[in-house]
Design a protein around this nucleic acid. Sequence first.
DNA 1: GTACTGGAAGAAGGT
DNA 2: GCACCTTCTTCCAGT
Length: 840
Amino acid sequence: MKSAEEDAYGYTPNVSLSLPLGNPCLPSQYHSLQSSPTISVSVTEPHSYDAQDDMRVDRLLFIFEHPPKRSPDPGEPSYRDHSLRADGYRDPSCLSPASSVSSRSCHSEASSYESGFSYNYDNSPQNSPWQSPSVSPKGSTLTLPGDGCPSGGSPRHSPSTSPRTSVTDDNWIGQRGSRPNSPCGAKRKYSFNGSGAPHKHFPYSPNHSPGPSPQTSPRLSVTEETWLPNTNQYTNSAILAAINALTTDGVADLGEGIPMKARKTSQEHNATVSLKVEPGGEELSPGDLCLDEHPANRLPLKKEGYCGGFLDVPQHPYSWSKPKQYVSPSLPALDWQLPSSSGPYSLQIDVQPKSHHRAHYETEGSRGAVKALAGGHPVVQLHGYMESEPLTLQLFIGTADDRLLRPHAFYQVHRITGKTVSTPSHEALHNNTKVLEIPLLPENNMRAMIDCAGILKLRNSDIELRKGETDIGRKNTRVRMVFRVHINQPTGRTVSLQAASNPIECSQRSAQELPLVDKQSLETCPAPGGERMLLDGHNFQHDSKVVFVEKAQDGHHLWETEAKVDRDASKSNSLLVEIPPYRNQRLSTPVHVNFYVCNGKRKRSQYQRFTYVPASVPTIKTEPHDDYDAPLVCSQHGPGLSLHPKPYFPPQVMTPGLTSDLRPCVVGGAYSVSQQRLAAKPSSLPASSSPSTSPKLHDLSPSPFSKCLPAGPPVHHPGQQPHISIIQETPGRYQPPNLYPPSSSSSSPTSQPSTPTDAPFSPTHCMTPGSTSPGAQQQQQQQQPKVPERGRASLQEDGSPPALAVSIKQEPQELDQMYLDDVNEIIRNDLSSISVHSHA
DNA sequence: GTACTGGAAGAAGGT
DNA sequence: GCACCTTCTTCCAGT
């Protein structure tokens, strides 16, 4: 039998084409898709891509139609594409298999799972199966081990259970003293050969699951044989191997200079594949692992793979045997901005995670699950879902900077297992991003306590070396937990919702020393200032200063002043400050400034957004909301200083002048508690990507987007939240390629000024008017009304009267005509491009 | 014995 | 180029 690698290679070229083979374990629909002529897209993206490439690909990839109503057959997985990633761009999985069992599985699980469905998501260039380039060549990567490229190895070699233990001298020669690091990699002193670990194990053999399998799982292990029986194994494994190979690709790139330490580990997993079983879960025999009736369905792929993934969840109360939810060939990419509510559905984070959580390195043991501020763990609930079918809640670690929310390149979610974990979970890998999948059960009221999610830190050097990676890891230590749920509807559509948590500081030091503002009671104030604002946060000191600054678009300071802090009323976790008067008392339009808490040199909190508004707020086509009164905007800050969740702004680049108007659309729908914050911060939206302005949006779903209109203030009305729903239109063939949001970090906002939209929509994902369900509204009202919303209204950067909490009437379509024209142009181009490749 | 934690050493990078 | 400080990564030890 060929080695996995060989298989991979062999298959590589054909991977996308061979899909029809269909992995039994994959959803049937995939089969249809695969074989279906409906897949009209074939993208041939350059191997190396840049942000723009990303986008383009994104657009292209999603052009296919689904069968009207699919009923996923858990037993019939199919790969669609998958897989074949061009490069390992942000493939932490590869890079860093977390040390813990769960993290280790990154690859394996992910891959397996991916093959099952994850990849379907991937629309990013790098993963696009259609990318021919990626497919084959990468295989070379497979040999990485040889290069000592850790990257490749890492995933597979993830340290076994405990990093320490796993990384023994024998297996890896990394000098202890030399710490890996330099992002540049230039300084790395690791000996790659020495460890040998990587090489040895490159488990691309079919037997091994491509992934690093956690050998460790004591409870259950699947041996090669287990998988072998599967007739499709070969095929699948080959494909999988290919996928992994590709996956590693990036790794390979990274590989160089990457300390092997992290990567070691895999020797252990040789022939055995182990499936993790959740606490309480019974041990399953290999045969049980793949419950699928079809032998064929047993994935030979990976242990933690498709089958494994499901298996590792305790059968009770939820059985992963119904992977339906996973199967949507066109689930939105992780870097798409999705709403938190749509129609009757609303995904909300009822309990936010603590603002600090020290992430662990691969070389460390787990540092536990992310906890909630008040103890316990974060809680997420899907409201408005009345079906009896369980859904899957996805969780990944996203960025917390001022740009669009996207998977964090330097952090990955880490599956926590153990006695203390009550929530079953499963890891998958979506386009280089680990995703934790958690069942949302009707019996639990579609509510899940996230006690199974930790955060893994990937070495900056590993990530920065990746091809295409533009983000810098240094000081990029804030993340957000991003939750998603995909709801298949009878109509064949899939509604995808997303909610992001408050930012979480993941570094050790920062968590201890840097001041952190969690909430601010005011977000706007009249130019004269004088209002008192209560800041909730951490690490405030008696001598902490609060500094207001205004920067020009080019970054320089226009104004800076220190606010008075009421020392007596301040504590380590709260500061009471008096808003300083703005430099210009004659404001005609709201002015956005920032402030930060400073504990001394270089010990500053992130920038917090604040808006000075004119004494009298101009009125524009607004409809005062019941809960708002223009005059109240700044006048009612009672002593009661209710805290709003505050928007977080990274100290980095504030993107002044950005089209904040996008905000509503971008995160707009997502006005979950957490999302609201996001929405509230204009800076989070890259100017370039102005989803809301996308003509398309209007075009496709006019009315509902009224709040997404450029002029619409990011106001959150209790009970009336703007939202966008991303729906996967099953039926119909899509005409135009859709516009996608910039993908991942590589696509900086500024780099893609032309990005038409952040609101992901495409032929398969159409923006549809969502209406908040009563339930959702109620929910929101319960949660948000407490907080004065005026501040929120002011967060626009577009200069529209922010102070008012208003609903902006939708402008006539013609206003967007110009955009439409542009977009149409783009679409035409895309289409022509597609036609060229599609039937390749 | 296995997580989970907190702390800190030491190297790299930045100022 | 040096000194000092910050940040990153790894390791140790206690619970």
